[in-house]
Amino acid sequence: MNANETLLIPSRVRGWSMGLANMLAKENTAWWRTRRWWLVCLVTLVLLNGNIWLNARGDIRIERNGVVFLEMAAMVVSIVAISLGQDAILGERHSGTAAWVLSKPLRRPAFILAKLGAHALGLLATGIVLPGAVAYYQLAAYGWRDLSPAGFAGALGLAYLNVLFYLTLAVMLATLVNGRGPVLGITLLVLMSGMMQFLLRPILNHAPWLTKVMPWMLVTGIDSKPSLGASLAVGDPLLTVAPIIATVLWCVLFTGVAMWRMRREEF
């Protein structure tokens, strides 16, 4: 060894977080030093903020325009989250880079947490905060004078929680199966069931309690009941907090299952 060897300080991190900081830094680099960030920005600004602009030219009420923005944000950003989440795991498993990095001092739970952490942060910034801030000024400019920043931020928070649900679901499924088809199929089916009443209605006829344990009500009104996000945005009290608590628990469960499954994965 040369003199340089004595200068280098070995990493002393042990346990579940071994390699997490380095992997997270790499994942953040993949978000912010590639075209990914501006592509997501472009998609959300064009689809979400462009839709507010278009609706403002029609005869839709401004409050309704805001609620449609929340619903669309939850759907569009969730689809982006599903796409990125499944590719984060399956793409690396299929290409062989997962086996490569896991041959280094990196714990498997840290691998999953780094993926989730970087995607959660990237989607928050490009899919929620940026279009949300633009939307706030658009809605205020188009006539929603009493739009509360705190209420709107709360509504965006619920849209983000909805995105996290689909992100963690996609990551968990990607650790459980080997093909992209089942992951995309299951996650999109759950997402679309919440967004499209004709799909949701037959399900709720048999299991009405599902609205309390699934994230659908966070941003989608069901059976003439306003969504929790819409209630927050207009300053009304929340009808229930059960979907919020349930979605947080689902996210924790999905993350836990993904880490457990990854520990058993063979390369």
Partner: peptide, 17 residues
């Protein structure tokens, strides 16, 4: 990226390696 799994620093020594 690989070196940082093994070493905490210093940056100059890592770059030299």
């Amino acid at each position: 990226f690989v070196a940082r799994f093994f070493y905490a620093g210093p940056r100059a020594a890592i770059e030299q390696r």
